[in-house]
Amino acid sequence: MEIQGKVKLIGETKTFGNNGFRKREVVITTEEQYPQHILVEFVQDKCDLLNKHSVGEAVKISINLRGREWTNPQGEVKYFNSVQGWRIESLQADQGGNAIPPVPPIEAFEPAEELNEEDHDDLPF
């Protein structure tokens, strides 16, 4: 699955437990009639993917939806969902790459050479 929007916030990388589990969060604001602020988690080595992105940038994030079941000390079962990112791409670079390049000014072109009367009818048939 993928989501697109503008980066609203990029959190710092946080480390948990003795195993060194790493997690970093980013908030994306979708660009639709009713914009949504979506929290996406990047974990372990994927945390570093956010280093080259900044707030306000238009991005596309490839995500997986994760669900967990947890039983609290009172025996009640609770369910939790998370959105986990595994790839992030800048959309601004893509849009620039698909644009038509500007036409150079007329002065940049050389004038065409004049044709001789003899050269205009040199077809072999």
Rank of each mutant, 00 (worst) to 15 (best):
M1C: 08
E2K: 13
G5Q: 00
K6L: 06
K6M: 03
K6C: 00
G11C: 03
E12C: 03
E12F: 04
K14R: 11
T15K: 14
T15A: 10
F16N: 14
F16I: 10
F21K: 10
K23Q: 13
R24Q: 10
E25H: 08
V26S: 01
V27W: 01
I28M: 02
T29N: 02
T29L: 05
E31Y: 04
E32F: 00
Q33V: 09
Q33D: 07
Q33P: 04
Y34P: 01
Q36S: 07
I38R: 06
L39Y: 12
E41P: 03
E41S: 14
F42W: 00
F42S: 00
Q44Y: 01
Q44R: 06
D45T: 12
D45A: 07
C47W: 03
C47S: 06
D48S: 12
L49I: 12
L50E: 00
N51P: 05
K52M: 05
K52N: 10
S54M: 06
V55Q: 11
A58R: 13
A58Q: 07
V59N: 02
K60G: 02
I61D: 00
I61C: 01
G67K: 09
G67D: 12
R68Y: 08
T71N: 13
T71K: 15
P73I: 02
Q74W: 04
Q74C: 04
V77R: 09
Y79V: 05
S82D: 10
V83R: 09
W86F: 14
R87G: 08
I88V: 10
I88T: 04
E89C: 08
E89M: 08
Q92P: 02
A93Q: 13
D94W: 15
Q95P: 01
N98S: 14
N98G: 14
I100E: 07
P102R: 13
P105R: 14
P105N: 11
I106C: 09
I106R: 13
E107W: 07
A108R: 06
F109V: 15
F109Q: 14
E110Q: 11
E110P: 10
P111V: 03
A112C: 06
A112Y: 09
A112H: 06
E113D: 15
E113H: 12
E113I: 08
E114A: 12
E117M: 05
D121I: 05
D122K: 14
L123T: 13
L123A: 13
F125P: 03
